[in-house]
């Protein structure tokens, strides 16, 4: 394992698991101030206290330290090879072990003793960045289990798409640890729609979508979700989601894939630059 790579990855793993993202925490604090339902407010105060303890004591925000996802994002003129990807993967595994994070990975059918092997890597590209970035995203499975994909007809109404998202949230309910951050991917093929839904979660959630149409759709969905009265721990109130983020991609004339990937309130991800890449 390259030392420089491990140092950077270790930083990302620790930051993701111990310190909640600032954009997420700011929205939780805002929700706490606005929430009128007493029980929901109590649940939000537990969340805030939990985040503060985790940061202060270097403890995992949640015991479900997720299926660790590694997004490797290459900018211009970066060369990626197998050895580099393996190094990043192994660094995440080693860092999880070293930092007392939970070994949650098992063989899917045979199960057995959970271990640290099984980090999932996504390769992506971004022409707007220089060099190489890695985002470590510990994805908790209480919320991951509620993922939905629907292949709509191309003539579907926007209302039907919205209703699908709302039904997905209602079915997720208290088990997926609200208040949620809802990632939505629209377009591409089936797996790419779900990939976009997940990718939406690693981007900042406190900024409106740059696309005005999508921004208004996000706003409308957030309002509808927050009128479901699910609330933190399912105790009711108006804080069922903190944000809705939509990403789109061109799709086929015959279809309209919509993927929904929910994050629990503890949306944890951290980005680092990897410097020693030959370019």
């Amino acid at each position: 394992m390259e030392k420089e790579i491990f140092t950077q990855i270790d930083k990302a793993v620790r930051r993701a698991n111990f310190s909640l993202r600032r954009d997420v925490f700011a929205l939780i604090e805002k929700a706490y101030k606005l929430e009128k339902n007493k029980k929901a407010k109590l649940a939000l105060s537990w969340i805030i206290e939990n985040v503060n303890i985790a940061r202060r004591k270097n403890l995992a925000i949640c015991q479900d330290t997720g299926l660790p996802l590694g997004f490797i994002i290459a900018g211009e003129k970066v060369k990626i090879d197998f050895a580099l990807v393996e190094d990043i993967k192994k660094s995440i595994e080693a860092s999880y072990k070293r930092n007392y994070l939970r070994a949650s990975m098992v063989s899917p059918l045979l199960r057995g003793k959970p271990g640290y092997k099984g980090v999932t890597i996504y390769l992506d590209f971004n022409s707007k960045i220089r060099g190489l970035e890695v985002v470590v995203f510990p994805k908790g499975f209480g919320s991951e289990n509620k993922t939905k994909l629907k292949m709509f007809n191309p003539t579907v109404s926007f209302k039907e798409i919205e209703d699908f998202v709302i039904t997905t949230i209602r079915e997720a309910g208290p088990q997926a640890c609200p208040p949620f951050i809802v990632g939505i991917g629209i377009g591409g093929d089936s797996s790419y729609a779900l990939y976009l839904a997940k990718k939406a979660l690693i981007e900042r959630i406190d900024k409106p979508n740059k696309d005005r149409f999508l921004a208004s759709l996000e706003k409308r969905l957030l309002r509808r979700i927050n009128s479901l009265n699910i609330g933190p721990m399912g105790l009711g109130g108006k804080t069922t989601a903190l944000a809705v983020k939509i990403k789109t991609h061109p799709t086929h004339i015959a279809g309209l894939p919509v993927g929904v990937n929910i994050s629990c309130w503890a949306l944890r991800s951290a980005k680092v630059k990897i410097n020693n890449v030959k370019s």
Binding site: A43, W46, I47, E49, N50, V51, I53, A54, K57, L59, A60, I61, C62, Q63, D64, R102, A103, S104, K113, P114, G115, G140, G142, P174, C177, P232, M233, C264, W265, A266
Partner: peptide
Amino acid sequence: PSGCGALLAQKVLSKKLIAFKELGA
């Protein structure tokens, strides 16, 4: 409290492995 594992850990006075060690967490 959902997702509040760090908070709840502060309320634990002792932890002891009782059975099924092979299952890890």
